[in-house]
Computed example of a mutant assay.
Amino acid sequence: MIRRALLLGAPLAAAALAAAALAAAPVQAEDRVLAQSPARCAAFWQGYADVLGDEGERALADRFRAASIRLIGEAATDATIAERRPWMRDLLDAYIHAGDDQSRDLFRRLVADCGRLEADLPYLR
């Protein structure tokens, strides 16, 4: 249900409401992955800021983290960020410092995916 709402462009708030309504039901793995998307974007932007030292990206990461906490809770959010942040630093190092084409392509995809998700962040306030 969450997956369908996100694919149809529904705001994350609708997905959060659907998740709350289904809290008693077993959650499919695919829905958990989509609910973790804000945490993954937070890890991406924190990794970016780690490599380039940009406070604007840290602020953006904080907004994604806050949205993720509303969806999956603080512990799950922070665990996802802690797991993925080093990967994002490695990705940025490979792209920026080593000029790796595959890393560049993945970076661009993450920027686009997180950019689309960013449009939904105001709905979670």
Rank of each mutant, 00 (worst) to 15 (best):
F44M: 06
R32M: 11
L6E: 07
W87C: 09
P11V: 08
L52V: 14
A82D: 00
L124S: 07
R89G: 01
L34D: 03
I72W: 09
R4T: 13
A29K: 06
D31G: 02
V33I: 12
A79H: 03
R109Y: 07
R104D: 10
D90R: 10
L91S: 00
D90P: 10
R89M: 09
A35N: 13
L6K: 07
G73Q: 03
G53W: 03
A14N: 12
D50S: 13
G53T: 03
F107R: 10
W45V: 01
T80P: 01
Y95E: 15
C114F: 06
G99N: 12
A10Y: 02
E118W: 05
E118Y: 06
G47V: 06
D54C: 04
A59T: 02
A21Q: 14
F44S: 08
A43S: 08
R108T: 10
A59L: 05
D50K: 12
F64M: 02
A35G: 12
R58A: 02
G56C: 01
L7C: 13
H97F: 12
E55S: 10
L92S: 07
A15T: 00
A10D: 05
V111E: 14
D93I: 11
R4L: 15
S68Y: 01
L8A: 10
D78N: 06
A21P: 09
R3H: 14
G9S: 09
V51L: 07
Y123K: 09
A29I: 07
C114S: 05
W87M: 11
E30D: 14
S103A: 15
A16F: 00
R65F: 01
L12R: 05
A5M: 08
C41V: 04
T77R: 09
R84I: 00
A21W: 11
A82S: 09
L121Q: 15
G47Y: 05
T77W: 05
V51Y: 01
D105Y: 01
L17E: 15
R125C: 11
R109V: 05
G47K: 15
D62T: 00
L71R: 06
A16P: 03
L71V: 02
Q36A: 05
A76G: 01
M1D: 11
L124F: 01
A79M: 07
L17Q: 13
C41S: 03
A67T: 08
A67K: 02
L52N: 05
C114V: 00
L7E: 11
L60N: 01
C114K: 11
I81G: 00
E74F: 02
P122Q: 02
R63E: 14
I81R: 04
G73H: 02
R3D: 07
G47A: 13
Q102T: 06
S37C: 03
L124K: 03
Y95M: 14
L92W: 10
R116F: 08
W45Q: 02
R89V: 10
G99Y: 08
L117C: 05
Y95V: 06
A61R: 09
A59K: 09
P11Q: 06
A42Q: 11
L17S: 10
